[in-house]
Structure formats: C-alpha cells, structure tokens
Deep mutational scan, measured.
Amino acid sequence: NQASVVANQLIPINTALTLVMMRSEVVTPVGIPADDIPRLVSMQVNRAVPLGTTLMPDMVKGYP
C-alpha cells in the first residue's frame, strides 16, 4: 500500500506547507503520494485542512 500525505496539524487556508505540517500514512482513500512531500513544501493549501486529513490534489494550489 502506498503512503499518502496527511496533515500533521490544522493547516489554515492559504498557508504555505512546511515539512512539520505533513506526515506520511497509509490511508483510504489514497491522497497525494508521500513521495511528493518535498515538492509540496512552500505550496499553499486552498482550504483549511484539519489535523489528520489526507491531502488531495485539489487542496493544494499548483499541484501537480
């Protein structure tokens, strides 16, 4: 099973992602692959992302 990117904390709308905000976890449904975490750094979320939420491609501005 492939690990996905999961919010490690509440991420407010328009926040630029940092490594501490994300963790990898095997979840269903599958979200953004954990391998993409380095690419996500400094990209902004377009909505508030609660703790434990799987990051989906449509939540991150400019992804992929």
Rank of each mutant, 00 (worst) to 15 (best):
G62W: 12
M22E: 02
P50F: 07
V45F: 00
P33A: 10
I37M: 15
L17I: 11
L51Q: 11
T28G: 06
L19Y: 09
D36W: 11
R47N: 08
L19A: 14
P29D: 05
Y63C: 03
I32E: 01
M56N: 06
V60M: 05
R23G: 07
L55T: 00
Q44V: 10
L55M: 09
A34N: 06
T28W: 15
D36Y: 10
V5G: 01
L17N: 00
A34V: 09
V26F: 06
N46T: 15
P29K: 04
M43A: 10
N1S: 11
G52V: 01
N8T: 14
P33H: 10
I11Q: 02
L51P: 07
S24Q: 09
L55P: 00
N14I: 03
R47K: 13
S4H: 02
L19M: 14
N1R: 07
G52P: 00
T53A: 13
N14T: 04
M56V: 08
A48H: 13
Q44D: 04
I37V: 08
R47W: 05
Y63L: 08
S24Y: 09
S42L: 11
T53W: 09
I37S: 04
T15P: 00
T28V: 09
M59E: 03
R47I: 12
Q2I: 15
V26K: 14
P50T: 11
A3N: 12
L40D: 01
V27N: 03
G31M: 02
I11V: 07
E25K: 10
T53R: 13
L10G: 10
G31K: 01
L10F: 13
T18Q: 11
V5M: 01
V20P: 12
V30K: 13
M22S: 01
G52Y: 04
G62P: 06
V6A: 03
V6T: 07
G31W: 02
I32T: 01
G31N: 00
P12E: 09
N46I: 15
P57T: 06
L10D: 13
P50V: 07
I13M: 12
M22L: 13
A34R: 06
I11P: 01
T54Q: 03
M56L: 14
P64M: 12
K61Y: 12
A7T: 10
R47G: 05
P38A: 11
V20M: 08
M22Q: 00
S24I: 11
R47S: 09
L40K: 01
N1Q: 14
K61G: 09
